[in-house]
Amino acid sequence: MLLDDAVLRAIMRGLHITGSFVLFGNCVLQGWLLPAPVKPWVQARLRVISQGSFAVLFIAGICWFVLQTVDMSGAQDAGDIWQALPVVAGSTRFGGLLIGRLVGFTLAALALWLGWRRGAAVLAGAALAAEGWLGHGGAMPGPVGTLLLGSAVLHLLSGGVWLGSLPGLWVGLRGLDMAQAAVLARRFSPLGVVCVIGLLLSASVQYLILIGSPAALLNSGYGQLALLKMSLLLGLLALAAVNRYHLAPRLPMGDELARRLLLRSVVAEMALGLLAVLAAGQLLQLAPPAMAAMLGQSGG
């Protein structure tokens, strides 16, 4: 096989989360941030973003479901997989939650199509947050598990609002009148700050619980990948700071150069964000350093 099964699962999970982020972020952008009236050019492209992100999250979600079924059941051929699919769908938290979330995203896409933008954002946000129960925090009992689960939900929603709304933000900044683009940038700015705080707080909790020490950050595959993700986040923060303090304030003065630079910066943010989410998909498949040494242990 060209790609290892675990890597393929991680890619599908990462793509599923990426699509979920963009659908949710696009709903938030249209529900709260976009100044009316919206030009048909902008509206048409936002619709393409919604449809495209829904297609990505749905197809990648189905692929993740099948690949995870193969891994869980140890299925060897198509017959085995066919038999295992209903068991995973009906008798596991993974199957039930993933199918429930796909239904939630479908309803969100439908609500957006009907013009219920804020309702769509709530539905998509709930479906996105439920991803947290498929991670480490969702499986761990007790207060530590609850803390980790809370941090995962905060991480998902913060990332979804910030990174997920970037494609729609780009379309708005590109297609709206300068005055409207300035309003959009001004409304996005405080929300971005809240998301950054949410991401930093949740990442700190995850570092504390799952990694635990600077040495583990450097000496384990999980830690190195987490370090890469943190570096990408720092890059995103630097770009966001330039946008907020240097470029966005120049839009109300009709500065076309600032708009062009802002568009490029948003594209760079999207690229870094996609890498960070794909890294997260891989990270979720690995054993955190705290217990990696215990794999294959001889009992308890």
Binding site: H136, M140, V144, L208, L210, A287, P288, A290, M291, G300
Partner: peptide, 9 residues
């Protein structure tokens, strides 16, 4: 709180 067991042991 020490690093947790995020797998089933």
């Amino acid at each position: 709180i020490s690093p947790a067991f995020a797998h089933a042991f």
